[in-house]
Design a protein around this nucleic acid. Structure first.
Lengths: 200, 200
DNA sequence: GTCTATAGCCTGATAGAC
DNA sequence: GTCTATCAGGCTATAGAC
C-alpha cells in the first residue's frame, strides 16, 4: 500500500523491493540488472548497495516480500466454515481472484520453481508455503478419503494456476473466448471439475 | 539420436542445438551466454556465428528443435481407438511418460510461457501446438458435453505438468513420498480425477 | 544515504588468418 | 568452418566525496 517516492525517505528498503518485484517477475533474476532496478526506483545503482549487500540478497528479499505478502491472502482464503465442498469452492474462488489481481506473485513462483536452488526452495517451503499447504491438504483429506490428499491438494492449486500460465499461448489457439480468462470462469471450471471428482 | 561429436562434421548445426537445449532449459535465455554454449559444443564462440546470425536466432532454433521433436511423441500419444475414457487414460499415461523422460521440453515450455514474446508464442501455437491441441479438445468434447472442452483440454495437460513443475518445492513439504513423483503415480492420479469428473 | 567515477570482468558480436 | 584476437558496451560491485 506504500507508494511513497523514495525521496520521502520512508522505508526506502521496502520501496526498492516494491519496485524490483515486478521487474524480477517479468524478466527473471538474470534478466534484470541493478541498473534496471535503480532506474525504476529513481536512485543510483550504487545507492542500492547501501540497502542490500549484493544483487542476490536484493532478489531474495524481493521474492520473500512478494510471497509473505500474498501468503496472508491465501490464509484468509482458507478461513471460514461450512462443508468441505463449500470450503473448497470458496478457496478456489478467492485464490483465483488473488492470482488474477497480482500476476507478479504467480510469475515469481513459476520462476522460483524453474530457477530456485535447493536452499531457497527449502526456505520458501518452510516460511511461506508450509501453513497454507497443510491447510489445503487437510481440506483434501476431508474431500476424498480414497484419493491421495497431497496430490489432490496440488491439483486444486494447479488447476487454477495452469489456466493463468497458459494464457499467453492459448491466446493464439482456436476456440478461445475472452471469458476463458476471467477469474470467475476459471474458478468455476476448477471447482466443477474437483467437486465432481470427489463426489462419490 | 545423433550424438556425434562436432569434429565429425555431421550436422554441426543440429549438434549445437542439441547441446544448447539443456542449457537454455536449465538457465533460460539470459542465463546462458554464447561462451557457455561454445564450451558445451566444444568449439569457439565465434564459430557459432557461422551457423546462426545471432544469439536470438540460435535460441529460437533450439526451442523449435526441442518442440518439434516432442510434438511427434504427443501426436502418437493421441493416436489409437477405444472409448473416450480409454483414449484419455492412454493419452495421460503416455504424455506423462514423455514429460518425465525429457524434462527439457517441459522447462522450455514453462520458460516460453513466462518469457516468450507475442510473435514467438504465435509461432509455437501455429507450428507446434495447434494439431495436438485440437485433438485433445476433440477428446474433451467427447468426454463431457456439459464442460467447456477448451478448459477441460487445458486441465488434462495441466494436471500432469503441474506435478512436475512443483516437485522442487514439494520436496520440502511434509507428507511427500517418493511415489508422488513417479510418472505412473502422476498419470494415475490425473486420470482418476478426470475420469471421475466426466463420469455423469 | 546518495552521489559520481571507476575497477574488473563478462557480454554479444566482428575481423581476418588458416 | 574454425580459429585467435579484439572491440564496444554492459555487468556487479567498490571507493570516496558530500
Amino acid at each position: 500500500m506504500d507508494v511513497n517516492p523514495a525521496a520521502t525517505r520512508v522505508d526506502t528498503r521496502g520501496f526498492i523491493l516494491q519496485q524490483a518485484i515486478p521487474l524480477f517477475a517479468e524478466a527473471g533474476y538474470s534478466g534484470v540488472s541493478m541498473r534496471d532496478i535503480s532506474r525504476a526506483v529513481g536512485m543510483s545503482a550504487a545507492a542500492l548497495y547501501h540497502h542490500f549487500p549484493d544483487k542476490q540478497a536484493l532478489y531474495l528479499a524481493a521474492v520473500n516480500h512478494a510471497f509473505v505478502d500474498k501468503a496472508e491472502g491465501i490464509r484468509q482464503a482458507l478461513a471460514g466454515g461450512g462443508t468441505a465442498v463449500a470450503r473448497l469452492e470458496r478457496f478456489v474462488e478467492r485464490f483465483t481472484e488473488l492470482m488474477a489481481k497480482d500476476p507478479d506473485f504467480r510469475k515469481l513462483l513459476h520462476r522460483e520453481l524453474l530457477d530456485g536452488d535447493v536452499t531457497r526452495l527449502k526456505l520458501l517451503a518452510d516460511q511461506v508455503f508450509l501453513e497454507p499447504y497443510k491447510a489445503v491438504v487437510a481440506l483434501a483429506k476431508e474431500l476424498a478419503v480414497d484419493l491421495d490428499p497431497y496430490m489432490l491438494a496440488n491439483s486444486v492449486v494447479g488447476l487454477v494456476l495452469f489456466c493463468f500460465e497458459t494464457e499467453p499461448l492459448r491466446r493464439h489457439l482456436p476456440g478461445r473466448i475472452p471469458s476463458h480468462d476471467r477469474p470467475a470462469t476459471i474458478a468455476r471450471h476448477a471447482s466443477t471439475l474437483l467437486v465432481r471428482a470427489v463426489a462419490r
